[in-house]
Amino acid sequence: MARLRGCGSGETGREEMIGLGQQRKDRCRVVIATSFLLALILDVVPLPHWAEPFRPEWVSLVLIYWCMAMPQTVNVGYGWLMGLIVDLMQGSLLGQNALAKSVIAFLAVAFHLRVRMFPLWQQSIFVAILVLIGQAITIWVKGLTGGLYPTWVQWMPGLSSMVLWPWLFVVLRDVRRLSRAK
């Protein structure tokens, strides 16, 4: 059973063979890094003009997943770093997304025990709320620095992220289990 729990989360606790534990940890790191890299790419891939406002917040979604699955490894620090990379890629004010993503990571870690027990659709609502909080932070920052064009479409990523969450959750969970099961 413990073997099936996948990388990290269960933390078998009996790591008699330290070498093996290290190997597993390395594998986990690779899986986490790869998923974040893919999320970053998907975050800037060009979309048709009409679909642009509906782009899900890939990085936030992956971040929330890992924060809930392995809160000891992935939490605020990862969030801040990923946010900073997003800022660099988008050419936005440095620290704007870093702040938003660290707050998202904090909330995801703070509620992870409760939310893990939720059925997927309820998790989706939780995820949507986190994404919207992140958007609110970036919109506030933009408002303060004078780069804001107010439209209601700006809140759409919350909706698309909510719709996407169940699929992403299942995919990432299976990947995590596979990486552990070997």
Binding site: V76, A98, F106
Partner: peptide, 25 residues
């Protein structure tokens, strides 16, 4: 102990982000 909300870290992240944004702006 580790899984409790990382309040110190989030405060640190906020304290790092805000000056960064101000300097960049």
């Amino acid at each position: 102990a580790q899984v409790s909300p990382p309040i110190a870290r989030i405060l640190f992240a906020i304290a790092l982000s805000i000056p960064l944004m101000v300097i960049d702006q």
